[in-house]
């Protein structure tokens, strides 16, 4: 890709004078980045790793009961952006986030806000299944125990069962809850991680390429699960598979080199992309 900033600007249309005046060279995103009933709202989010800028002024909403997928070539910043939403980037040395990210109207980067309970509200499922080296039961009970969500052993048992049930794993593991979670198959492990996340009843679930380490059958099961989970949670999913984005999400955001290039209804993005970069990517010309 040999596109200069000038060319990019021509493609994305004229920038407003306010943006030209600003120090950031943030670009206008094509399409409507707001959601009708937003749970999380992000405005002009910049992320820096040391002196290197990874995200340029991204604005995006995540609505209630919807799945937003983020696609784009490797290194485009989609995972970085996702990790901002539950402040997981705090654990990385030299990472700095500016701009506004709100969860239900509450600024999550506010100095007075403690990131620890935030992460219970905004759960996360990782690329590689990462069950703790504990039993299946303990994996799911981990979060509720830490947050004191249950008052008795019976309540905890119930919560573990319902979480595993929601993650579609209960039938497969109900007879071996005391066995190590690491002994499950890759797909089962990932569903265990989803159950673990559900157990602390989050509002938003972030998924960072949740199926990239799984075979097609396990992937299909997880995709079906994501669609079911939409009824109760808001979901943001980063994926490298455009088919997956098309199958599971209602809205799709296309990232490129730290910029949010285009966002819109999934159908529209995949059938009628407005931006040339988006079109190039989804038609497989690069990426």
């Amino acid at each position: 890709m040999n596109i200069t900033v000038d060319e990019m600007e021509k493609m994305t249309g004229a920038m407003s004078s306010a943006e030209l005046a600003s120090e950031r060279h943030s670009r206008t995103t094509v399409g409507d980045f707001t959601a009708a009933d937003p749970r999380m709202t992000c405005r002009n989010v910049d992320v820096w790793y040391g002196s290197k800028q990874a995200i340029n002024g991204v604005s995006l909403d995540i609505g209630k009961n919807e799945v937003v997928s983020m696609i784009g070539p490797s290194g485009c910043g989609k995972s970085t952006f996702l990790r901002c939403l539950n402040r997981m980037n705090d654990t990385i040395d030299g990472c700095r986030v500016t701009g506004s990210i709100q969860l239900d109207g509450q600024e999550i980067y506010d100095k007075s806000l403690d990131p620890v309970p935030l992460r219970a509200q905004v759960g996360m499922v990782f690329q590689k299944p990462n069950p703790f080296p504990k039993s299946i039961y303990e994996n799911v009970a981990y979060g509720p125990r830490i947050h004191g969500l249950t008052n008795s052993k019976a309540e905890l048992d119930e919560l573990v069962e319902s979480s595993l049930e929601k993650a579609g794993l209960w039938k497969e593991v109900k007879d071996r809850l005391d066995q190590p979670g690491t002994g499950l198959s890759g797909g089962q492990q990932q569903r265990l991680c989803i159950a673990r996340t559900i157990a602390v009843s989050p509002e938003v679930i972030l998924m960072d390429e949740p199926c990239s380490a799984l075979d097609p059958i396990a992937t299909a099961i997880i995709e079906e699960l994501i669609d079911e989970l939409r009824a109760n949670y808001s979901i943001a999913i980063v994926t490298h598979s455009m088919q997956q984005a098309a199958r599971v999400s209602q809205r799709t955001a296309y990232f490129h080199l730290g910029d949010l290039i285009e966002v819109g209804e999934t159908n529209q993005i995949f059938t009628n992309p407005q931006h040339r970069l988006t079109e190039d990517y989804i038609t497989g010309r690069f990426g």
């Binding site: 539950n86 990782f126 830490i146």
Partner: peptide, 25 residues
């Protein structure tokens, strides 16, 4: 690191993560 990430993402503090995940592992 994925063990730590998993624990932090469930809203555990650093010392809870150390006590309940890292030391047992």
């Amino acid at each position: 690191q994925s063990m730590r990430d998993g624990s932090y993402a469930l809203g555990a503090t650093q010392s809870e993560t150390i006590r309940r995940v890292i030391i047992p592992a």
